[in-house]
């Protein structure tokens, strides 16, 4: 089988398009490249969705954690401690075990005037269940980063905004928010990269693979098992992830440049990839 044919049959295998059966014998390096690459679709999906949705939750949590009112602050603190204080691996296991306990037929919700049934079965699927765990997890880590940045917003900036007669909402929108984002961005970049790395855990924890549709590491593990040779499949995933990481650093640096564009060149904060405030 030529490599072009393999690409045709397996390039979208991870999302269920193409050849149904995975290659079993005479596995070529091309097979491994294509199928593992196809698995990267899921890593990208989990990473991008969790990052996009988690960002807003994280900002909300950071603001709540900074609030004077303990009714807002305490739940945010507990949420952050729960997700930062325990291993993601255990969170996946636990979430899956909890989701399968939900009634299969759905939960009837009485809204007073009408009764609706909330479907729950999709929660046990990785695309939804694992995404929720990843989303909550990254929100907790990012919230800690944003909270730190929030505390680092210069006092003078806020006083100046007050002196201009800005309302608290306007002050947040025009002064605190942009400064917080600018200060948090280098650390947030690290968090994003680690989130993408964490997506490889999904199919190694509680969540089962359906129709043999899994992420890059799922297929790498499949090939390592079939060929009894870990020296090809795992370096291929590693290579894909190096590419992904470089792309992410590039994208986040572009945004960072935009966030810092008003500052004189020498006082801009560069995105330095340092695993410091991470999981």
């Amino acid at each position: 089988m030529s490599c072009a044919q393999t690409i045709q049959e397996y390039a979208l295998r991870a999302i269920g398009i193409g050849e149904r059966l995975l290659p079993r014998s005479d596995i070529t390096v091309c097979d491994q490249f294509v199928l593992i690459g196809s698995g990267m679709i899921w890593n990208l999906y989990f990473g991008l969705c969790a990052l996009a949705l988690g960002f807003f939750l994280a900002v909300g949590l950071a603001v709540a954690r900074n609030a004077a009112n303990p009714l807002l602050r305490k739940p945010a603190e507990w949420f952050i401690f729960l997700f930062r204080g325990s291993p993601l691996f255990i969170q996946f296991f636990l979430a899956y075990e909890a989701f399968v306990l939900l009634p299969r037929a759905g939960i009837p919700l009485n809204l007073g005037f009408t009764e609706i049934t909330v479907a729950t079965s999709w929660l046990t699927k990785a695309w939804a269940g694992a995404l929720i765990v990843l989303l909550l997890n990254t929100a907790a880590y990012s919230a800690e980063i944003f909270f730190g940045a929030l505390r680092a917003v210069p006092k003078g900036d806020i006083e100046a905004a007050e002196a201009y007669g800005m309302s608290p909402a306007t002050t947040f929108r025009r002064v605190i928010w942009p400064t917080m984002l600018r200060l948090a961005w280098p650390a947030y970049t690290n968090e994003a990269i680690f989130l993408f790395h964490a997506t490889t855990l999904v199919y190694f924890s509680g969540f089962p693979a359906w129709r043999q549709e899994g992420d890059a590491l799922y297929y790498a593990n499949y090939f390592a098992d079939k060929t009894f040779n870990p020296f090809v499949a795992y370096p291929i995933v590693a290579g894909y992830f190096v590419l992904l990481t470089l792309t992410l650093i590039g994208l986040f640096s572009l945004i960072n440049r935009r966030l810092n564009r008003h500052l004189p060149k020498e006082s801009r904060r560069r995105v330095r990839y340092r695993p410091q405030l991470i999981r």
């Binding site: 059966l21 129709r211 043999q212």
Partner: peptide, 28 residues
Amino acid sequence: ASHVASSGATLVEFATPDETIAAVKNGE
């Protein structure tokens, strides 16, 4: 697992036999 993959049914894989039974019991 190989039989199910080629039979036309949708295969869900688990690492241990116990988990496969649990999946049927809870409707997964």
